[in-house]
Amino acid sequence: MRLALWLSIFFLAIQASAQTRTSGDATVTGAMGAGTLTPRAALEIGLHVADSYALKVSSPDGSALYLLDRSAKAGLGVTPTGARLDVSGRADAGEVGLELRAGNSTSSLTSAQIAFGAANGAYRHNIRSRATGTQSAGNALDFYLWTSSDAVYSLGSSYVMSLQGSTTTLLGVHVSPSTQSVTAELVVSSGTVYAGGIILAADAVGAPCFSDIKHDLGRLEKKEREAAQAELLALRPVSFRYKGDLLERKGFVYEEAPASIRDGRGAIVLDERLLNLELVLQAAQGRIERLTAELTHLERRGR
């Protein structure tokens, strides 16, 4: 009898070592190691060689809600494929894939919502959001790039572009890079030609012109009008095709164009061409007025 009792106790102990089942709640007030006998966190899950998944959180029907696989790739509602975090969902059904709630207020740009780093976490480009609930202006998504003027592990601070609301235009894309001198803040390329792209806009060109944002003002008078006239006459218009493109165009060759309309970096500036043309027309108007007066004088004298 005593032997039977001891055998049953021994058998129960062996069962506990092989598989332990708890039908009620289990509470661990110390650390818990799953797959490890030396947990280094409140709960540590240690992978074994044969494991496909470290962590599975499943629904009542057993389908995976969250999976963390052996290569530390996580899937939410999906078996993780190539990405570190693979999120399933259907926007058509009203689902949002990723929501980031750490945005800045309008008056602050302390941190970012998303940082894009290299493998060691360095050189971080980033997207920052600014929000205000009281007005349109100040709400924005700002894009920053890292450059070597930033500390290696800091967030990049070169401001490149912003999608933003404003009190006057409601919403807009604001290409607003660093204040340093650059070749161009916005380059529009075609598939074959750098900066050879086409822009469609109703009111394409508007230059900020208030006098209070300008200094070193000087009126362009007769001398400049005559220079513009000489430059217009010196233009050598050509037809051409951009290399690699079939569309025939008309225009000028940078190397032949007068200095006043060249930007110094291979482009001919539309605004300068228009300004030259306006100066020429003003000069022509003066000459026409003088001719008209002279003809009137000659007519009177002829009478």
Partner: peptide, 24 residues
């Protein structure tokens, strides 16, 4: 239908990136 605001706008014009140049 939008409006763009900028200081200036250029057209890339170097002969190096053009073919079939013909005087008008």
């Amino acid at each position: 239908g939008g409006t763009m605001r900028r200081k200036s706008e250029g057209t890339v014009s170097s002969a190096l990136i053009k073919d079939g140049i013909r005087s008008l």
